[in-house]
Design a protein around this nucleic acid. Structure first.
Length: 209
DNA sequence: AATACGATGTCCT
DNA sequence: GGACATCGTATTG
């Protein structure tokens, strides 16, 4: 499967449409330390304004979620659980809240740098498959931070390549979303079946995918 | 492997 | 005050 550089218009659609197209995509983030590139393997879709109880934008605009309402193709980062940063790519036209949370990826470039960053947090060696497995780990491995909130993925230090054709994928309930926004009412988690970098406790129970 | 628990911003009631 | 788009560590089987 070959890759191509998408256009911003490709992100004008709802996150529900964009999420599966991001599977297999390669997001590259450059820094003074060097580049790290991630092959996306697991994502979740969120929409806003009363339609999605699991979304940060369920009750409208706040200071934190402002970027979700901005133009598509930008990064929405947020701080959660008192210690972790997670990253989304914003979808839909400006004024409409919609974003795809990056949940897991395989490091395909800059593995040594990604490992140094993760070891710096954990103090331990990290297996290849765990380098960017989980939304907060992914952000650390890529060298992203809250400073990237609002950054344009179509401009340095970012570069994004999408698969030319839709790859095979699976959907299921979103992880970590309890209550009305969780469960089968919102099966808006998308992942590559069988990929070892997909968060294990997120895989379908007893499945061998 | 499975479970339990701590860390603690931001938003909500 | 409580829930949360979490993860690292310790403890137990």
């Amino acid at each position: 499967m070959t890759l191509h550089r998408p256009r911003r218009e490709d992100f004008l659609a709802s996150s529900l449409e964009v999420a599966p197209r991001l599977l297999g995509a390669v997001l590259r983030h450059d820094s003074e330390e060097g580049p790290v590139a991630l092959r996306i393997t697991e994502v979740e879709a969120y929409i806003g304004d009363g339609l999605d109880p699991g979304s940060h934008a369920f009750r409208g605009r706040t200071k934190r979620n402002a970027v979700m309402y901005g133009p598509p193709g930008h990064v929405y980062t947020y701080f959660t659980y008192g210690m972790h940063v997670c990253a989304n790519i914003v979808c839909s036209p400006e004024g409409e809240a919609s974003a795809v949370l990056l949940r897991a990826a395989e490091v395909v470039e800059g593995e040594d740098l990604a490992e140094r960053r993760r070891v710096g947090v954990t103090g331990r060696r990290i297996p290849h498959r765990d380098l960017a497995r989980g939304p907060a780990r992914l952000v650390v491995a890529a060298g992203m931070s809250l400073a990237d909130d609002g950054a344009d993925v179509f401009a340095p230090p970012f570069d994004l390549l999408l698969p030319d054709e839709q790859v095979d994928y699976v959907t299921g309930p979103r992880t970590g979303v309890s209550g009305a926004g969780g469960g089968l009412a919102f099966p808006w988690r998308y992942w590559l079946p069988g990929d070892p970098t997909v968060s294990p406790y997120k895989r379908h129970p007893k499945s061998h995918d």
